[in-house]
């Protein structure tokens, strides 16, 4: 599912930033791989969610391709995790898959490992996605 050692990607840390550039780069790489497999867009948000799911829904609504997007929003302060799946993305990522991903993520979050929790969760969603395969791409010549 995932490779790499979490300690090896910690990189240089700036106390002002929650994550190192190496961690962000690694997560972005995981997201790109997941997007290719699941055929949906993944976005991760880490910050305060004042109104929990309502805030996450509003953030998801601001995404460029909201219908095709999955937003994983984490509030480390209130220990909340919100997964919002767009209307079209729901065909690939169902709620059961979200629950599996949430389990993978929270098992990391409880020990303070946010970035690898996000990586694991997105990888789980990609593994369990059901991308819509196009079976008939060629139109009849005289159609």
């Amino acid at each position: 599912m995932l490779d790499g050692n979490s300690d090896a990607i910690d990189g240089v840390w700036n106390d002002q930033d929650p994550f190192s550039s190496a961690q962000i780069s690694n997560l972005a790489s995981t997201i790109r791989s997941a997007e290719q497999v699941a055929k949906v867009q993944f976005e991760t948000f880490v910050g305060r969610l004042p109104e929990d799911r309502k805030t996450a829904l509003a953030l998801h609504g601001q995404l460029v391709h909201a219908d095709d997007s999955v937003l994983v929003a984490v509030d480390p302060h209130s220990r909340g995790l919100e997964i919002v799946v767009g209307a079209k993305a729901k065909q690939s990522i169902d709620d059961r898959t979200c629950q599996l991903a949430a389990l993978a993520m929270t098992s990391r979050f409880v020990v303070g490992d946010l970035i690898n929790g996000l990586r694991d969760g997105i990888a789980v969603m990609a593994d369990h996605a059901h991308p819509n395969h196009v079976l008939h791409r060629d139109l009849p010549e005289n159609a």
Partner: peptide, 10 residues
């Protein structure tokens, strides 16, 4: 009806 997903606390 329009979006899916879940809410979890840890």
């Amino acid at each position: 009806d329009t979006v899916g997903g879940i809410s979890v606390r840890w």
